Each structure stands twice: as structure tokens, then as C-alpha cells.
Computed example of a mutant assay.
Amino acid sequence: MAKNAPLPKPTAAELDLLQTIWPLGTATVKQAHEAMQKKRPDLTYATVLRLMQIMHGKGLLIRDESQRSHVYAPAHAQDSLRTGLLKELIHKAFAGSGKELVMAALRGHVTKKEREEIQKFLHGDEP
């Protein structure tokens, strides 16, 4: 993938699977399926397999085919993909204003504990 190429945009299901694979680092389809079943017991192995194949084709996952069971890994770091998605969201939904995004998030989407952590961060008390 070219250095300046835009990051692929995962669907909600693909992002959910990435959220499962990022902490694992790498996973076979079986491992990903087992981890996903904790949240979604209805999810079939075939669905996870197909989703991972699609994600590999889109450049969201890389695949090591040297073993009998293919091992998949995220093609992009979690922070990198999140940053790209956030930039797009700010541009599309908030007319490019990071402040508007933060204000919208703070209106009803933050717990009291999270609000306290944000306050500490803004006052430089948090690394």
C-alpha cells in the first residue's frame, strides 16, 4: 500500500472484529471466532472466515499463509486507524472542527468518572 494512500474504511462488523484482533496481535480464524463468540454467541465460524477474507482483500488484515491455518494480523495499528476514522468524522460531520466533535461527545456521552479524567488531562495532571 502506498505511503499516502488513504486507510481502508472498515464497516461496523469489520471494526468489531478488529477490536477483537488488536489485543491478540495475530489470530487464526478459529481463534478470532472463539474470541468473538464471547460478545456474539450467534456468530458462525463461516461468517468470521468470510469477514476476515474480505478484510484481507480490503487491506485491513495481513495474512501469513506459511502455516496450515492462515494467521491474520491487523494491517494497521489501532491508533493509526482510529486517527484516520476520526479525521474523516470531524471533516464530514463537524465541518472540520475538533472542538465541535469534543463538545458533541461531552453532551451526554461521557460518564462522571470519564469527565473527571478529562478534567485532569486538561489541567495537565494526567500523562
Results as ranks from 00 to 15, higher is better:
2 A>I: 10
2 A>G: 13
2 A>K: 10
2 A>W: 02
2 A>P: 14
4 N>L: 13
5 A>P: 00
6 P>C: 01
6 P>T: 06
7 L>V: 02
8 P>G: 06
8 P>W: 03
9 K>S: 08
9 K>W: 01
9 K>F: 07
13 A>N: 08
13 A>S: 11
15 L>K: 05
16 D>M: 06
16 D>C: 00
17 L>P: 00
17 L>Q: 04
18 L>Y: 02
18 L>Q: 05
19 Q>L: 09
19 Q>A: 13
20 T>N: 00
21 I>E: 02
22 W>V: 09
22 W>S: 02
24 L>N: 12
24 L>E: 15
26 T>C: 08
27 A>T: 11
27 A>E: 07
28 T>A: 05
30 K>F: 11
31 Q>T: 15
32 A>G: 04
34 E>G: 08
34 E>Y: 08
35 A>S: 15
36 M>Q: 11
36 M>F: 00
36 M>E: 12
38 K>I: 09
39 K>G: 14
39 K>T: 06
39 K>A: 12
40 R>A: 12
40 R>W: 06
41 P>G: 07
41 P>M: 08
43 L>I: 15
43 L>W: 11
45 Y>G: 02
45 Y>F: 15
46 A>Y: 02
46 A>V: 09
48 V>I: 15
49 L>F: 03
49 L>R: 08
49 L>C: 03
51 L>M: 12
53 Q>P: 01
54 I>M: 02
55 M>E: 06
55 M>K: 07
58 K>D: 11
58 K>I: 03
58 K>N: 08
59 G>K: 04
60 L>M: 03
60 L>I: 00
61 L>D: 00
61 L>P: 07
61 L>V: 09
61 L>A: 06
61 L>K: 02
61 L>Q: 04
63 R>S: 11
63 R>E: 09
64 D>V: 05
64 D>F: 07
65 E>P: 01
68 R>T: 11
69 S>L: 11
69 S>R: 13
70 H>F: 09
70 H>E: 07
70 H>G: 14
71 V>L: 13
71 V>S: 03
72 Y>N: 07
73 A>N: 03
73 A>L: 01
73 A>I: 04
73 A>T: 13
73 A>Q: 13
73 A>M: 11
74 P>G: 05
74 P>I: 05
75 A>P: 04
75 A>I: 06
76 H>W: 15
77 A>C: 00
81 L>Q: 04
81 L>Y: 04
82 R>I: 12
82 R>S: 01
83 T>R: 14
85 L>A: 10
85 L>Y: 07
86 L>Y: 08
87 K>E: 13
88 E>T: 14
88 E>I: 07
89 L>D: 06
89 L>Y: 03
90 I>D: 00
90 I>F: 01
92 K>I: 08
93 A>Q: 14
94 F>L: 06
